[in-house]
């Protein structure tokens, strides 16, 4: 009954014809954040596969996402860089990988999320784009508002993303 030579991933998740595969999502559990950010839920008209806690030689445990028929323009790589930095995106057409991309943490985040502070001027009806500096240490990604100076953990404030 040994399957040590077979591909675990394939046992768990089917190959997809068209869409994207996001692999090497760590630490495990971050796939849920990615789904939220990509607005993939039961109302999404196509299939999406989530694999959690998949053993990986290099990473220990990781998550994998496969999303059918998602449009490239709906994948905001800058936003994903705040959420699942270090993962890889493969774009699939007719079962073939047509493009690969590594998701990296951006240095700044401009206009893609709201500031969590109620006393920040950017939450007023003003002609202003929000601006955050990204501070990373290991798996923790924090943002500092360039206006009000507040510092927060992005995974604790995921709903701030627009």
């Amino acid at each position: 009954m040994s399957n040590k030579n077979s591909n675990n991933k394939e046992l768990i998740v089917a190959k997809i014809d068209n869409g994207v595969v996001i692999d090497h999502i760590t630490p495990p559990g971050r796939a849920f954040y990615a789904l939220k950010v990509l607005k993939i839920d039961e109302k999404y008209p196509h299939s999406a596969f989530v694999a959690l806690n998949v053993p990986s030689k290099k990473l220990g445990r990781k998550d994998v996402l496969k999303i059918r028929n998602i449009d490239e323009k709906d994948l905001n790589i800058e936003v994903l860089g705040l959420i699942i930095s270090g993962s890889n995106v493969a774009y699939i057409k007719d079962y073939h990988i047509v493009k690969k991309e590594k998701i990296i943490t951006p240095k700044k985040a401009t206009g893609i999320l709201n500031c969590p502070s109620s006393t920040c001027i950017t939450n007023q009806r003003e002609d202003v784009e929000t601006q955050f500096v990204v501070i990373t240490s290991k798996d923790v990604i924090k943002l500092r508002c360039e206006y009000c100076d507040i510092i927060f953990n992005i995974h604790e404030r995921i709903s701030l993303l627009r």
């Binding site: 502070s117 006393t119 920040c120 001027i121 950017t122 007023q124 003003e126 202003v128 508002c145 360039e146 206006y147 009000c148 100076d149 507040i150």
Partner: peptide, 10 residues
């Protein structure tokens, strides 16, 4: 002088 943080920068 303004009651909100970030006001001077804006």
């Amino acid at each position: 002088r303004h009651p909100l943080r970030g006001s001077a920068k804006l």
